[in-house]
């Protein structure tokens, strides 16, 4: 698949258990997220948002279906590579509700860990990391430990980490849940900016309706399928 789609999901199913304990979470989800697009993924709690995100992120194996990440088909009823971790490392940036930084690494080491693992030299990785940290206004914290930073600063470090491997896709699981409303808007605007400037497909799981107008599109899990919703002009209750 060549073109502008960063993520393409076709007829994706995810079931847990079997027999009497079978739980159908996703039933035939199909959607695309384009490069340069920030898409919100919404649904009530327990509807399978994180599961869907983890399937796209090559962490949770789907039951069946097809997943394309950029030009590479990674799943078609089975993983098409044994190295799903390599795909994550090279193509995907993860951002979570909490920053989940490695506490025994300082800020710049947290950011450069994945690029260095990908074979980027320490000097080059440090250069990339410093550019990102400067971009997020935390360049002066490069040698600080995560425990010495505020929640907002740590979240910016986490975003820098997600970008350090120059990913094609960013999967953000409620990145604003732990932030106040001002910080939340800043983070989502930042993701939007990154999506455009770096031509990255961004899926952001959120419960915060105030963030939806900042997104390009909304995907909603409804009746175990993924449907597209219009972006509300104002804070309209759609959850």
């Amino acid at each position: 698949m060549a073109g502008k789609a960063g993520i393409r999901v076709e007829n994706l199913y995810k079931h847990f258990g079997k027999g009497d304990t079978l739980v159908r979470v996703i039933e035939g989800a199909s959607f695309e997220v384009n490069k340069g697009e920030l898409v919100a993924l919404i649904a009530p709690s327990g509807a399978g948002k994180t599961t869907l995100l983890m399937m796209i992120g090559c962490v949770e194996e789907p039951t069946s279906g097809t997943i394309w990440l950029g030009d590479e088909k990674v799943y078609e009823d089975k993983w098409l590579t044994k190295e799903t971790r390599k795909i994550r490392r090279e193509k995907i940036g993860f951002i979570f509700q909490a920053h989940y930084l490695i506490p025994f690494l300082n800020v710049i080491e947290n950011v450069t860990l994945v690029p260095q693992t990908n074979g980027v030299s320490e000097a080059e990785a440090n250069k990339i990391a410093m550019e990102l940290l400067e971009y997020f206004d935390i360049g002066d914290k490069a040698r600080s430990m995560p425990s010495a930073l505020s929640g907002g600063q740590n979240q910016r470090v986490a975003i820098a980490r997600a970008l350090a491997n120059k990913p094609q896709i960013i999967l953000a699981d409620e990145p604003t849940a732990a932030l106040d409303s001002k910080r939340s808007v800043d983070v989502v605007k930042m993701l939007k900016k990154i999506a455009i400037e770096q031509n990255v497909a961004v899926i952001m799981v959120t419960h915060d309706e105030a963030m939806l107008p900042l997104c390009d599109r909304i995907l909603k899990i409804e009746d175990k399928k993924v449907v597209s919703e219009p972006v509300p002009k104002e804070g309209v209750a759609i959850l």
Partner: peptide
Amino acid sequence: IKEIAIMKLVGIP
């Protein structure tokens, strides 16, 4: 274990 899980999640072999 949490840090290890994070490392595995972001692709550390």
